[in-house]
Design a binder for these strands. Structure first.
Length: 184
DNA sequence: ATGACGATTTACT
DNA sequence: GTAAATCGTCATA
């Protein structure tokens, strides 16, 4: 953060949005507007969008410039800056927030990290304030990764059923872990 | 200018 | 389980 505090977490849940052919994607049918323009940028670009009148969600652009494919960051296991995250998340809530719920959802994660439209279009691979680095613990075995259909895209017909959500099996930091964390 | 809607979260019955 | 919160964006006119 601006005061030097480091907020960090391990990505434990993601969803893929496969571009112009994907009915659940903001770029479906080649739709290109000021809002989703970042999706058409180079790989490693952040696509942060505002939704439901109150939430932000953060994606990582994955394909070449002009090809609007991205991965939605859905949950993190927080590993640094927990105090700040708790403050961010408790602000607009009644009680306290369990540590397993600090970043267990695409909008929760953005709230905990303080991500908003200022980060839209940011380069996640450089030295800027927001970045993604290789996990020190290394890659996971396939057995440790679960898959399921994506969340909240029921309007997308056949695409809604595709298993394009990935999560760390057994992680308590996955969104809706009680319902979905053990699926597939 | 208008209106419908959302890649969600939270609270409440 | 259901519903409220809350508003930018985009398609339509």
């Amino acid at each position: 953060m601006s005061d030097g505090t480091v907020l960090a977490g391990v990505i434990v849940e993601t969803e893929a949005y496969l571009g112009v052919s994907d009915a659940a994607s903001h770029a479906f049918g080649g739709r290109r507007t000021p809002r989703n323009e970042a999706m058409y940028g180079p790989p490693g670009t952040a696509y942060v969008y505002f939704t439901y009148g109150m939430h932000f969600c953060c994606n990582v652009v994955c394909a070449n410039p002009g090809v609007p494919q991205a991965v939605l960051l859905r949950a993190l296991e927080p590993i640094a800056g927990l105090e700040v995250m708790r403050r961010h998340r408790a602000a607009r809530r009644r009680g306290q927030v369990p540590d397993t719920d600090l970043c267990s959802g695409p909008a929760r994660l953005c709230q905990a990290l303080g991500l908003d439209r200022a980060f839209n279009g940011a380069d996640l691979l450089g030295r800027s304030a927001l970045r993604i680095v290789r996990a020190p613990r290394g890659p996971l075995d396939d057995e440790q990764v679960g898959r399921s259909p994506r969340i909240g895209v029921d309007y997308a017909g056949e695409w809604a059923r595709r298993p394009l959500r990935w999560f760390v099996r057994g992680s308590a930091h996955v969104s809706g872990s009680k319902r979905l964390g053990t699926a597939s």
